[in-house]
Structures are given as C-alpha cells and as structure tokens.
Design a protein around this nucleic acid. Structure first.
Length: 551
RNA sequence: UGGGUUAUUGUGUAACGGUAGCACGGCAGUUUUUGGUGCUGCUUGUCUAGGUUCGAAUCCUAGUGACCCAACCA
C-alpha cells in the first residue's frame, strides 16, 4: 500500500520551506468573499488549502474577504461555513478582513507618512485615462505631489465622512510607467457610504482587495497564501505592501483554477442562472455549486477524491465531468443501499403462482458483506420496466421476450408466454409462468438465464417521484463557446417521472440515505420530499454498456 | 505592436539530463442473480524549427498557440 505519489509544485515548495527551516509549521487560509455560494472550483481550493495544512501538520484559517459591503451578505457567510464543514474540513480560526479595518487604516496612514500614498480627487474616468495603456506610460496628475500633511488630513477627512462616494480615493504611489498596469498607482481605499454586514456604519471608506488581502495574510502569519492564476499580476503589489510596511512576509503562490465540461463556474453566471429562473435556486441539483451537488447526492468523500484526482498545476484545464461521475459512482457503489424501483411499469401476471405471496430476502449491498438484507414482497402480479421487454428481440437481448426466460432479482426465473394488448395495439400485460424450484438462493432448477430484472409487487408498489438530471449545458466548453452562454442551456436537463413504483421498504428513506436503484443509478431523497410524496434525485446513472452496444 | 503565465495521448496529471508512467475515457476479454461491480490486456502523446550532449519532454536560441492584466470587484 505504499503508493509512491509525486508531489505537486506547491507541496514541493512547502517541503523545501520545511526542510530549510524557513517555516517550522505552515498556516494556510481559505479566503472567500461572502457574495455568493461556493462551487466545485472553490472545493478545489478548499481541498488544497486544508489538505496541505493537514498533510504537513499545519492549520487553515477561514477568512472572509469582506471588503466590499455592497455585494456581501451574512446569508453567504453562513452557507460558506456550512459547505466547508460539509466537505469535511474544520478551520482553526474564523476571521474576517473587516476585523482588520482599523489596522488596515493605520497601514495606509503609514504609507502616506512615508510619502508612498496620496489622495486623488480625479474621477474614475480620469484615473483610467491617466493610467495609459500597456504600451503607453501613465502620466502623473497634480494630486500626486500633494504633501504628506495634506494627504494625512484628507485621508482622515475621508474616513470622517466629509466626502461623497467617488469624490476622492487613496492611491499607492508606485510607478506610473510600470509595464504591470496594477502597479500604476493602484487605488487602495475608496469611499462607500454603505452598510457593511458586520461593521455596520462604522466605516465609509473601504480598502481594496490589493490593500487588504496581503496584509490580512500577514496579520495572521499565513505562510503560504494560495490563490488562482489570475492573481499573478497582483503579486508584485502584494509583496510591495508587505515590504513597505515591514510586516510579516507571507508569500503568494498561484495554481490553475478548475474548469469543467458542460457547466459554468463563475459566480456572475451562476447568479444569472438563479435570478433568471433557468434553475431553481443556488442549490438546484444541476448547479456546479457545492450546495447543488450536495442536494443531488454527491458525497463529501467523492468530491474530495475528485479534487485529489484532478491535480494541482499552473496550466489551463478543462476537466471531464465524467471524472466527477466516476468518483461519485466509486464511492456510492460501496455505501449505497440497493433497492428496486420501476420507472415505467409494465404489468406481468405469474399465472401459475398460487397463494397470497411471500416475502423474499434481498441483499442491501453486495459490496458490503455486513450490509444485511431486507424483505421484498413477491406476489402474483408484478411490475417490470417496460423497456425490459421486447416483442421482437434482437440477438444478444438478455431481457424478457415471448418464450424467453429471465430471473427476477432475488426471486424466481420466469418465462413470458403471452402478450396482451389493447385495441390500439399497446402492450398492457404479460402473462408469465415461474419455476417454483428456481427460488433465489435455493435454486435447484438447473436453468441458466442471461438476464436479471428488477421488479416490484403491484399490490405493494409505493408511488414516488423521481427527478433525473442531465448536464446543464449542451456545449462542452461553455466559457469558450461563441455568444451568450445562456444560448447553450440544455432544455432537457431536468426530467421528472411523477410516478415511479418503488418497493415498500423505501418508505423509510431519510435525507442522509444513499440508494442504488438496481440497474438504474444512484439516488437520494430530495429536500422537497414528504412522507406522503417521496421525491428522489438521481445523483448519477449506472454505466450502461447495453445502451451503447444497442446504438 | 507592453507585461505576465503556460504548452506531455481524447481529458487531466507525473517524469527534476538516462526505459515517457498513472488516472479517467475508449476497445477487447473474464467474472457476475444489477448489461452495475471486480479482474486482465490493449489504447497513434512530449507545440514547431534549429542547437548543446554519448543521451533532451527536461538545457540553449528563435518561432507559434492558449490564457491573464488598463474595475473606486475579488
């Protein structure tokens, strides 16, 4: 079991830092902005940050990057905490960038005092124009040469609320000619007379990401600050602030964010899907949100396994959704309780079956020797799946056909003798005979059949609703597709079976149960389910080589 | 036309100058009271062109493609 596994590039950095004594213990952080729900891309970051800390005996803080009061809300804070814990991780400290507002303010004052920041009265359009372009240097304006004293006073006045939104900003004085646009005197504080979900109305100026993130890392003594590739150009600013302020030198490392086929990952697009009613909320089972996947029945174990399998590197990637499906099947196969549910019923009558019926034992999980059994009622009249019968069967068809025999799972071998139709020619019933000595576990018939079908006793059938989900988009690479991403929404991504027939034991199902409907797929109870009307979500179907061969 | 990051099979990801490996997918076989699972085997890859070297995915030079950066968003 000593599987030699190569390290990813961040693990290599950490091991080098530990070996050289640069750090004796590592501290990472997961820093979401509470302005939306977490998605599978965040799961990658969570697994990375918490996973690294766990692997190397360190810790991870959960820090909310709440520096923009107009987009953030406590609702998101709660859902984020919930999702992180559900994924199986526990943070060392729950922190907020807003906890550091006073300290951040003092950092800005220090910068002003060093002549490294100034208050600018320009409009955002003027600032943008003065910044130049990648090939043309920016030009300084008159505000850039304000005195330290004046800047100090003006910044204090900004804090005191003497100015309206947009009237003034504080800018770092770095280099207007830098080829890195982010270094051309970036704005580090702006005025927003807005209510903050935690600090209320205590502040009317708020630090920008570039002035808050690195310093927050530093305040917490984060050793390895791990973020996605698009922040690479921000790193010089991150380092500049820490250096000028002379504070704890946290370091930023960047990895490639997760992209997945047939879905979208940006908060903006996810929000749009919710707001425009293309899905039924953030936790719609088709969403790439953690809450959606959770509702759909994905397990924390399978998501963690997925994040582990996709690896960590710096190149752009597009992960096959099929890999996620593989991970969830792999886990669910080991833990899901087997049950029989018929989606599209076709009645069969066992003409030679006498008596009121019997209860037959059926294994709960063939993968689990200790899984036990449950009793399934067997009677004269049963339902099987309509497409498990063909009047004219092609060769290699192992299911039921006139004159052909199959085993009913955990029950008997039956043979189809007669097909009954209505006036329109639709098949309404099959008359079959069973082999009394072919009882499951006690078969002395010597008959060998190729097919085994799932079934439900007609008299005991429990009507349930089943919801089946397909990919949300028709395009593999949605982000790269031309035009509006909404043009590629899969109209058939949700299929509802209002009345499927389940074996009676399923009436006891609870929200945390995981099932495999035999020969169908993996299912769980939806949150909208009630004892009167059970609702199941399909997590993922079973691999179906027959349907592929059939094509 | 500026700066940055990146390029290994269909998709991901290893290889740290010395046999291009692993996973998913695909294909074939086998097992099976789930056409599921398990097991076995197979599965056209180092962006291009030069160079250094006994030997290059790896080092050098020159190209090419992709992605990111000019929000008072993060």
């Amino acid at each position: 079991m000593s599987e030699e596994r190569s390290l990813n590039f961040i693990e290599e950095i950490i091991e080098a830092d530990l070996a050289s004594g640069k750090h004796t213990q590592i501290l990472t952080r997961f820093p979401p902005e509470p302005n939306g729900y977490l998605h599978i891309g965040h799961a990658k970051s969570i697994c990375l940050n918490f996973g690294l800390a766990k692997k190397y005996g360190g810790e991870t803080n959960l820090r909310f990057d709440d520096t923009n009061p107009v987009t953030e809300d406590t609702e998101y804070v709660e859902s984020i905490k919930d999702d992180v814990q559900w994924l199986g991780f526990q943070w060392a400290k729950e922190l907020y960038a807003s906890d550091y507002f006073e300290q951040l303010y003092q950092f800005a004052v220090q910068l002003i005092a060093k002549g490294l920041a100034y208050v600018d009265d320009s409009t955002s359009e003027e600032i943008a124009a003065q910044k130049g372009t990648p090939t043309v240097s920016g030009v300084p304006n008159v505000y850039r040469s304000r005195s330290v004293e004046e800047n100090l006073q003006l910044f204090a006045d900004m804090r005191a609320g003497k100015f309206a939104d947009g009237q003034k900003v504080l800018r770092a004085k770095i280099d207007l000619a830098s080829p890195n646009m982010l270094l051309r005197d970036p704005i580090i504080y702006r005025i927003k007379h807005a209510h903050h979900h935690r600090t209320g109305d205590a502040w009317c100026i708020y630090p920008m990401y570039d002035f808050a993130h690195g310093q927050s890392d530093s305040i917490e003594n984060i050793t390895h600050s791990i973020c996605t590739l698009e922040f690479i150009p921000h790193r010089p600013m991150y380092d500049w602030c820490i250096e000028q302020l002379g504070i704890y030198p946290s370091h930023q490392y960047e990895f490639a964010r997760l992209n997945m086929t047939y879905t979208v990952m940006s908060k903006r697009k996810l929000l749009q899907l919710v707001n425009e009613g293309h899905v039924n909320g953030w936790d719609d089972p088709r969403m790439s949100t953690i809450s959606g996947m959770r509702r759909r029945g994905f397990t924390p174990e399978s998501l963690r396994e997925f994040c582990d399998k996709i690896g960590v590197a710096k190149r752009e990637n597009l992960i096959d959704f099929g890999l996620l499906e593989f991970c969830v099947r792999e886990h669910l196969n080991k833990v899901a309780q087997r049950r029989m549910v018929v989606f599209d019923p076709l009645k069969i009558v066992i003409t030679n079956y006498e008596g009121d019926g019997e209860d037959l034992p059926s294994e709960n999980n063939p993968e689990d020797p200790n899984g036990g059994e449950r009793m399934v009622p067997f009677t004269k009249e049963l339902y099987i799946e309509r497409d498990d019968f063909m009047e004219v069967a092609p060769k290699k068809y192992f299911r039921l056909a006139p004159g052909q025999s199959v085993r009913l799972k955990s029950a008997y071998i039956i043979q189809c003798n007669e097909v009954i139709k209505d006036e329109a020619g639709n098949i309404t019933q099959l008359n079959c005979t069973y082999l009394p000595n072919s009882k499951s576990g006690n078969d002395t018939s010597g008959v060998v059949v190729k097919g085994t079908l799932h079934w439900v006793s007609a008299a005991h059938a429990l009507p349930v609703e089943v919801r089946i989900y397909d990919r949300l988009f028709t395009e593999e690479n949605v982000a790269a597709a031309e035009g509006d991403f909404k043009d590629y929404i899969n109209k058939d991504s949700l299929k509802i079976i209002p009345q499927a027939f389940a074996e009676p034991f399923l009436a006891q199902a609870t929200l945390s149960d995981r099932f495999q409907f035999i020969r169908k797929g993996y299912y769980c109870i939806d949150k909208e389910s009630t004892p009167e009307k059970l609702v199941f979500n399909q997590t993922v179907n079973l691999k179906d080589t027959w349907s592929k061969v059939n094509k």
